[in-house]
């Protein structure tokens, strides 16, 4: 338990830092909301190495932290919508065992964008925002692939470390 809490703290901090980096270096392609989603990398790692509950709380804590520090309330609600939808989809995808980390990551990236845009449609009250959907599906897919590659590498290496320590502790 204590070990998990320690990992949890580290991962949360890492996710927070990743969010900050993306905040400092935004990708501007003319469409709002396009980003790599480095923080999702950490969430996926938590999903695979810790468990569902830890991944959930990590995701929510990160979004709240970001929203309260360098975000604003409006951006926070978008992040929450994207983050929660993306996480739920990833959990289902992982449980279903149909996909590898790569597939889970892609789904996470795509649905993060979908969640955000759905909220935006409700808030701004214009369906014309759905014009962005194809762009955001594509950018979500690309980001998902990149994050998927990184996640697979990270999980492979960290798994050994965690399991090695785990056996020692037990």
């Amino acid at each position: 338990m204590a070990k998990k809490v320690a990992y949890m703290g580290m991962l949360t901090a890492l996710a927070f830092v990743f969010s900050y980096i993306e905040f400092l270096l935004p990708i501007n392609l003319g469409v709002p909301g396009i980003k790599l989603g480095l923080a999702n990398l950490v969430v996926i790692v938590a999903l695979y190495l810790l468990d569902v509950r830890w991944a959930c709380s990590l995701s929510v804590v990160r979004i709240l932290l970001v929203g309260l520090t360098f975000g604003n309330p409006a951006s926070m609600i978008y992040s929450l919508a994207g983050g929660i939808l993306s996480l739920v989809i990833m959990i289902i995808a992982k449980k279903g065992k149909l996909f590898s980390v790569m597939g889970v990551s892609i789904l996470g990236g795509v649905f993060h964008n979908i969640g955000q845009i759905v909220v935006a449609v409700f808030v701004v009250e214009t369906t014309s925002l759905l014009y962005y959907l194809p762009v955001l599906i594509l950018s979500g897919t690309i980001a998902g692939v990149l994050i998927g590659i990184l996640s697979a590498i990270l999980i492979r290496h960290l798994k050994k470390a965690i399991q090695a320590e785990g056996t020692k502790c037990e």
């Binding site: 149909l98 996909f99 590898s100 790569m102 597939g103 892609i106 897919t141």
Partner: peptide
């Protein structure tokens, strides 16, 4: 990477 991943992509 599984076959399903490619299909999804």
């Amino acid at each position: 990477m599984k076959k399903n991943d490619v299909i999804l992509l």
